[in-house]
């Protein structure tokens, strides 16, 4: 466990705090580990000690662990796939090229079955989302304490290794998708056409306010559901892993904990793949809807 003398509640909440770098306002009172407190004379950019400071930083803060891991995984994706793309051959595919082609073919088939317009961005977008989100989710299968413990040895207090358990990460991607939905809706239908679509259906024109309300809720629900579905699933899964890990600290329960961990991990293999696929395919579906005239 990350800390030797923690209560289960402390342990759990410790696992749920991101490594946050942000701006504390002037006059903020910080309390260090020994209980001494001092007041900041001016606004300071620093790493938060504990969840309270992280929360007090407000919007002007960034989760170093989320960004570090997600960028590292994104780079891993780009690097490994680009290496295949560089040496790709139309002859007999071998080794990793097989694997990459399997994923690319899988995404390509799915995108073609959903998205019937000509847009060279959609399929690569789907591939990026699928693989990147999958890799982020995959971090959930690393036993919950390994990397935080390593980080602790290196003097880093907080380390959340699964980027998709951070709502900022999932919402960041979902907002990207939302921007694309708006862009392609307007590009395909024009501002007027898009507005008409929002205002003049499902009921006739006289019910415009009602229509507008209904359609806007529907529109905004797309990115929110994308972000929260992924976040919720992974956050809950991570929480279960943490709870199982808590068990292992309580005497005889350790055997049961191992068993449970294994069972949940096997089940989680399904969840992380499914959630990555759902995020990718719903993105494509939403963009197909942006193209279609209703």
């Amino acid at each position: 466990m990350a800390g030797a003398n923690q209560t289960p509640a402390e342990y759990i909440s410790h696992h749920l705090v991101n490594l946050t770098y942000g701006k504390l306002p002037a006059g903020y009172e910080r309390v260090d580990a020994e209980g001494h407190s001092h007041v900041l004379e001016q606004a300071t950019w620093t790493i938060a000690h504990g969840s309270q400071e992280a929360a007090d930083m407000g919007f002007m803060a960034i989760h170093l662990d989320t960004m570090g891991w997600s960028i590292a995984l994104g780079v891993l994706f780009c690097w490994s796939f680009a290496r295949v793309a560089k040496n790709v051959t139309a002859g007999v595919p071998t080794g990793f090229q097989n694997f990459v082609e399997m994923i690319v073919g899988f995404i390509d088939d799915n995108v073609k079955s959903v998205f019937h317009h000509n847009n060279p961005w959609i399929a690569p977008l789907g591939l990026t989302i699928f693989v990147w989100v999958f890799l982020q989710n995959l971090m959930d299968l690393i036993p919950v304490d390994w990397i935080p413990w390593l980080a602790m040895q290196m003097g880093v207090d907080y380390m959340k290794v699964v980027p998709s358990t951070d709502v900022n990460a999932t919402a960041g991607m979902a907002i990207g998708v939302f921007i694309l939905i708006l862009y392609y809706s307007i590009k395909q239908k024009g501002v007027g056409g898009f507005a008409a679509e929002l205002a003049f259906q499902p009921l006739p024109k006289w019910a415009m306010p009602f229509n507008l309300f209904l359609e806007l809720v529907g529109l905004v629900a797309k990115p929110i559901s994308l972000a929260l579905r992924l976040f919720g699933n992974l956050y809950a899964g991570e929480m279960v892993f943490i709870l199982i890990a808590v068990l292992s600290n309580v005497g005889l329960w350790i055997v049961l904990s191992f068993g449970l961990h294994f069972v949940w991990a096997v089940f989680h293999v399904l969840i992380i793949t499914l959630q990555a696929f759902i995020f990718a395919i719903l993105t494509v579906v939403y963009l197909a809807m942006a193209y279609d005239h209703h």
């Binding site: 942000g22 919007f59 960034i62 994104g74 900022n168 991607m173």
Partner: peptide, 22 residues
């Protein structure tokens, strides 16, 4: 569950990765 700059950073890196993939 703090919403902060991470959101923007993730959005930007998402865009870059998609561009790279494309």
């Amino acid at each position: 569950m703090n919403i902060n700059l991470t959101l923007i950073a993730q959005l930007i890196s998402f865009a870059i990765f998609v561009w790279f993939c494309r």
